[in-house]
């Protein structure tokens, strides 16, 4: 087999194992619930009968292996189970709670990624090319400050100035499903802007470091000494070797984006999956927490997997073995 294919398959296999172990960890959350948990959920008025009924409802009477298989089997068919907020005669499925919100979060993350990735890569590249210039120092100081700020600080500052004082954007992002695209975009402007600021700062710094590391290679100096034009040095000599570090930077930060969304959604009351998860954690609605965690974790693992595969596929030593 070609070594490249073998390495990619190995990586995919490793990814699958990771997914399995992570699903086990998330599933086993329910195993660690304290004994008085049902009471906490059902309230002090719960009778022993209702507690028992509840425990049966969530399947605590069955062996863990069977429950895991049921759980993961259901998820593979798109059934994430019932929320703890279900009551007798009124079943709320986890999917009902998270499905519309998942779409909202993907919208938010997607728009942010569209803005932030090119911006960060561009700025990072510029800072690397003109390193130690005024531009580089200024942008470095700015990003160092931004990454030192908690996300909610950035979010509220933007809200205070852009929404409350300047009234350019709405301060709350209560989007709904039937909203036209541009109105949705306007409502999402502040969350997108906040996330962009945070992500760009991280991503730009990492891009800069990766490119500077690359530009210090002797083959880049050689290209310059061959009289290759500055643009060609970047495009022909640096870029083919830069895919791996850049892919890793982007994957890392997109994953960060998904997580950063949790705080930002809460600030702007944006109806996304992050806010759903926070609410579920507060009410200890475990099935919803598990579903959200699984979605976040799978996204994160897949993005990293993709970055790894890009790194492997652009490595000349693997592409062209001896």
């Amino acid at each position: 087999m070609h070594p490249l294919l073998r390495t990619v398959l190995q990586r995919l296999g490793l990814g699958l194992i990771t997914l399995f172990v992570v699903s086990l960890i998330i599933f086993s959350a329910i195993e660690f619930l304290p004994g008085d948990f049902a009471k906490a959920i059902l309230g002090q008025a719960a009778t022993p009968e209702t507690v028992e009924a509840f425990q049966k409802e969530i399947g605590l009477d069955k062996p863990p292996v069977e429950r895991y298989l049921n759980w993961i089997g259901g998820i593979l068919q798109g059934d994430f189970g019932s929320s703890f907020s279900s009551r007798v005669g009124f079943r709320r499925t986890v999917l009902d709670i998270i499905a519309p919100r998942l779409w909202n979060t993907l919208f938010l993350a997607g728009i942010t990624a569209l803005v932030a990735v090119p911006l960060a890569l561009g700025l990072g590249l510029m800072a690397a090319l003109y390193r130690n210039s005024f531009f580089d120092r200024a942008i470095n100081a700015a990003t160092l400050t931004t990454i030192s700020f908690p996300e909610f600080f950035v979010a509220y500052i933007l809200m205070l100035f852009l929404a409350v004082q300047l009234r350019w954007f709405p301060s709350l992002s209560n989007v709904s499903a039937d909203m036209p695209f541009f109105e949705r975009l306007e409502r999402s402007a502040l969350p997108v802007l906040t996330l962009t600021l945070v992500i760009v700062a991280h991503m730009m710094r990492m891009t800069r470091a990766a490119i500077i590391g690359l530009l210090a290679s002797p083959y880049i100096e050689m290209a310059r000494l061959k009289g290759v034009s500055p643009g060609q040095v970047i495009l022909r000599h640096a870029l083919p070797n830069a895919w791996a570090p850049i892919a890793n930077v982007v994957a890392f930060n997109l994953a960060y984006l998904v997580v950063g969304a949790v705080v930002v959604e809460v600030v702007f009351v944006y109806p996304g999956i992050g806010q759903a998860m926070v609410d579920a954690v507060r009410s200890r609605d475990i099935p919803v927490v598990q579903a959200c965690a699984l979605i976040f974790a799978v996204t994160y693992i897949l993005l990293n997997l993709l970055a790894d595969i890009i790194s492997i596929a652009t490595n000349p030593r693997l592409l062209h073995p001896r």
């Binding site: 990771t18 172990v21 992570v22 960890i25 998330i26 959350a29 329910i30 660690f32 619930l33 304290p34 994953a255 960060y256 998904v258 997580v259 949790v262 998860m277 926070v278 579920a280 954690v281 200890r284 609605d285 475990i286 927490v289 598990q290 959200c292 965690a293 976040f296 974790a297 994160y300 693992i301 990293n304």
Partner: peptide, 21 residues
């Protein structure tokens, strides 16, 4: 450690907090 790091930190923290309070 690789496996623990496969889950975003804040998300992992949220799961654990939902269980242990």
């Amino acid at each position: 450690v690789d496996t623990l790091m496969a889950i975003p930190q804040l998300i992992f923290a949220l799961i654990l907090l939902s269980i242990f309070g």
